[in-house]
């Protein structure tokens, strides 16, 4: 404990704890409690919700559509976020490090724009991009009417979309992290003539390992809960892009079944926990090797 008494530490943490306790933990547990009831937003079950125990969980776990959506979600999360956003985000941060100021600002602004626009708007951009009849991609390929990308290759389209959508965060985080790598270390690596790969592995990675882990955990969690795919494909065609949040929407929200969606929330939470443990293990293995 360096220079910060226990009482001061508590005082520093207290505001966060109060805010999180009241506005996050409390409603979150309430939501999970709703997961063991048959509560609905409207209808007779809204008037007198009953505790139905694990019925909702049984419903979720016996629904084949749930497992399909889970599989799609895992692909979506791992390919687009854990690999795609991570690699591209780091690549951009690394490549732009030495670029000219104006170029750097321009590219960062573009990447950032993809991230700041609200989903409802971003969906339009990508529909205009991938449209069968007048889409930019088909225009560049010189075909009209061309491929209905979102109908014929829905998951691929969603993965590319999400890389575009979310890379900004990884880029920003890695830029900030890279600025904490002492320039003198990089200079030394250059002087002794190590290759870029060697420099990355021996000098940069040890400094940003924790950031990389944090980043991966966060973007995994966020991608898992991202509803934007619904706006692009509505889960279609024929459920082929029904990732978890879309599944929740289609099965629970359309019918106003809050209990069911509360239960799915917990299941999704547990899967995220599992993923986090896998990442942690991988990170530990990476460090010890």
């Amino acid at each position: 404990m360096v220079g910060l008494g226990r009482s001061r530490a508590v005082a520093f943490v207290a505001p966060a704890l109060v805010l999180i306790g009241v506005f996050l933990v409390f409603p979150a547990f309430w939501t999970l409690y709703i997961g063991v009831t048959n509560y609905r937003l409207t209808g007779a079950a809204a008037k007198a919700p009953e505790v139905v125990g694990l019925d909702n969980y049984r419903g979720v776990l016996s629904d084949p559509a749930f497992y399909r959506s889970l599989w799609l979600t895992l692909i979506y999360v791992l390919v687009s976020a854990a690999v795609g956003q991570n690699v591209l985000g780091f690549g951009l941060a690394w490549a732009l490090r030495g670029a000219r100021r104006a170029i750097r600002r321009l590219i960062e602004s573009l990447v950032l724009l993809a991230w700041v626009l609200p989903s409802s708007v971003v969906a339009f951009l990508w529909i205009a991009m991938l449209d069968r009849d007048a889409g930019t991609v088909n225009m560049l390929l010189g075909q009209s009417p061309g491929t209905a990308w979102l109908v014929q290759y829905p998951m691929t389209a969603l993965v590319v979309f999400n890389i575009w959508r979310g890379t900004a965060f990884s880029m920003m985080l890695y830029s900030a992290a890279l600025s904490s790598v002492p320039p003198s270390h990089l200079e030394t690596a250059r002087v002794v003539g190590s290759s870029t790969m060697q420099t990355l592995r021996d000098v940069v990675l040890p400094h940003i390992r924790r950031h990389a882990l944090t980043n991966t955990l966060l973007i995994t969690l966020w991608t898992f809960n991202d509803f934007t795919p619904f706006l692009l494909t509505a889960g279609g065609p024929d459920h082929r892009s029904e990732v978890a949040p879309v599944y929740i929407y289609n099965t629970a929200i359309v019918g106003g079944d809050m209990g069911y969606s509360g239960a799915v929330s917990l299941v999704v939470l547990l899967i995220n926990l599992l993923l986090a443990l896998v990442y942690l293990r991988a990170a530990r293995a990476g460090r010890s090797s």
């Binding site: 999180i20 309430w30 509360g262 986090a276």
Partner: peptide, 23 residues
């Protein structure tokens, strides 16, 4: 900390809007 992070994903959905509104 990670537990809290996980919980924060619970309250983004519509299901959580009921508790939040009532609170």
């Amino acid at each position: 900390l990670y537990g809290l992070l996980l919980l924060s994903s619970v309250i983004t959905g519509t299901a959580a809007m009921v508790p939040i509104f009532l609170l």
